[in-house]
Design a protein around this nucleic acid. Sequence first.
DNA 1: CATGTTAATTACGAAAAGTAAGTGTTACTA
DNA 2: TAGTAACACTTACTTTTCGTAATTAACATG
Lengths: 112, 112
Amino acid sequence: METLCPRFEKAMGLLSTRWVGLILFDLLEGEKRFSEMEADLPISGRLLSDRLKLLEKEGIVDRKIYSEFPVRIEYSLSEKGRALEPVIKEIQSWADHHITHEEVNEEAQLKG
Amino acid sequence: METLCPRFEKAMGLLSTRWVGLILFDLLEGEKRFSEMEADLPISGRLLSDRLKLLEKEGIVDRKIYSEFPVRIEYSLSEKGRALEPVIKEIQSWADHHITHEEVNEEAQLKG
DNA sequence: CATGTTAATTACGAAAAGTAAGTGTTACTA
DNA sequence: TAGTAACACTTACTTTTCGTAATTAACATG
């Protein structure tokens, strides 16, 4: 096989990691802390932790520790992460135009 | 937990299905047949078959059978699928600006 | 010193996704 | 009738990933 486009493949590999899209979507609202994101998203703390670590490693998310009581840790998008905003917006736009009410309901049913 | 945005979640669920992004990228070049895509992409025939079936079910890919010898089957993007072009282009653009040469190489190494 | 709070890690079984190889179908071709 | 091409489907097996729940860590508070 030939490589389509190594950069695209790498980017798509990141974006297609489960929950990464939703995490980015959530962080576009601004700085968030762990427990806040855990409440926003349908994933367990273990996965959220994994994904945040991945995104931090990739330079997409910044992690700031505030040594207060109790410890506060804020996650936010780096410049590289904010640069993904157009991607997220395009997905949102596509979803608004092409995802039907029925399709959304089917999804909801799968989750029970 | 609250739902961020059901349509976005549904769209992201699709786009974040492994290989779907690459398949769309490939099909943006135009109509392709199975074996051609198999050669373009780093996935097995079984998976390609699964993904194409999924995308067909979601109305993103059209499948046309030409009863020639030997049978020829062409896959292409539907209108709904072509509407994803801006998404793919934005990802490509982000990748071009933010994925470094080093990151691409790391990926390559992982694949051996 | 036990308790509460936020965040992260670990362990472990279950579920899902992956590969490779082989089989089936159809129909032309030699 | 054997061979071949394009594609789909099946089987057996391995590897990854997920989710729950328990545990750790740091630290202020009562």
